[in-house]
Amino acid sequence: MTSNDGTGSGAGARGPYAKGVQRRQEILDQTLDVVASRGIDGASLRAIGEAIGVSHAALRHYFSSREALLVEVLRERDAASNRALGDTAGVFTRLGVVADRNVSEPALVTLYTTLLGASVESGNETARSYFAERFATARSDLATQLRDELAASGRHTDADLDQVASLIIAAFDGLQVQWLLDRDVDIAGTLRLLERVL
């Protein structure tokens, strides 16, 4: 998923706009490092600003709140993950690649899981909106990919593929939570088992 805030429209632009886009990207790139070193609770806007050498006012110029900044970090990582996957074929192959990438960045998994939990509470509308949109898109994309894979293989199923997509997402996110608590949990391996079961 990508952001619709128009920041990408200035690619190749010069002057203050280009510098602003670059600075915003630097903030996003460095925020996850702050989360990794200080934890979510220690990653206030002020703490993030101090750690990366940006004033609180400058952070507020780019992001209206800590929640908005952290959600944007997740959006950026989603976009980077999608670019890295490219034309990787197969739903479960793609999920395995994403799982392996996520395992290499525990702070990203922690950030995702923490914001997901917070999104169900009132007052976290930015996170709620992000996750609602993300899940709707993921369900739709997964169901379409599953339909395409079945059609290409000549197989048929009576299962509701939208529900299967929901099940896959639930398994992936649940496995990530288990992995945060026990690093012996094999996310990609368990997803391969789910593929055989399905």
Rank of each mutant, 00 (worst) to 15 (best):
T2L: 06
S3C: 04
S3N: 15
G6D: 09
T7I: 07
G8E: 14
S9R: 10
S9M: 11
S9C: 07
S9I: 13
A11V: 13
G12F: 06
R14K: 04
G15S: 04
P16F: 05
K19W: 03
V21K: 14
V21G: 00
I27R: 05
I27C: 02
I27P: 05
L28C: 13
V34W: 07
V35H: 05
R38I: 02
R38C: 10
I40P: 00
D41M: 12
S44G: 13
A47N: 11
I48L: 06
E50M: 10
I52D: 08
V54T: 11
S55Y: 05
H56S: 15
H56L: 15
A57E: 15
A58E: 12
L59V: 12
Y62V: 08
S64G: 12
S65L: 11
S65K: 12
E67F: 11
A68F: 06
L70G: 06
V71F: 14
V73Q: 08
L74F: 06
L74V: 10
R75V: 13
R75M: 14
E76N: 15
R77D: 08
A79Q: 15
S81K: 13
R83S: 08
L85R: 14
A89V: 10
A89S: 14
A89M: 09
G90Y: 02
G90H: 01
V91D: 01
V91N: 02
F92W: 05
T93R: 10
T93P: 02
R94H: 06
V97P: 04
A99Y: 05
A99W: 03
R101Y: 15
N102Y: 14
V103D: 07
S104I: 05
P106G: 06
V109A: 14
T110Q: 14
T113R: 08
T114P: 01
G117P: 02
A118P: 00
S119D: 02
E121C: 07
E125F: 11
A127I: 07
A127M: 09
Y130M: 08
A132T: 12
F135A: 13
A136C: 03
S140P: 01
D141C: 06
L142M: 00
L142I: 09
A143G: 00
T144N: 06
T144D: 11
T144V: 12
Q145P: 00
D148Q: 12
E149C: 03
A151G: 01
R155N: 03
H156S: 10
T157R: 00
D160W: 00
D160A: 00
D160K: 00
D162H: 05
Q163D: 04
A165D: 01
I169A: 06
A170V: 06
F172A: 06
F172I: 01
F172M: 10
D173F: 15
G174A: 06
L175Y: 09
V177Q: 08
V177N: 02
Q178C: 03
Q178A: 13
L180M: 09
L180S: 03
L180Q: 13
L181E: 13
R183M: 03
R183V: 09
D184K: 07
A188I: 06
G189L: 07
L193P: 00
L193V: 15
L194R: 01
E195R: 08
V197G: 00
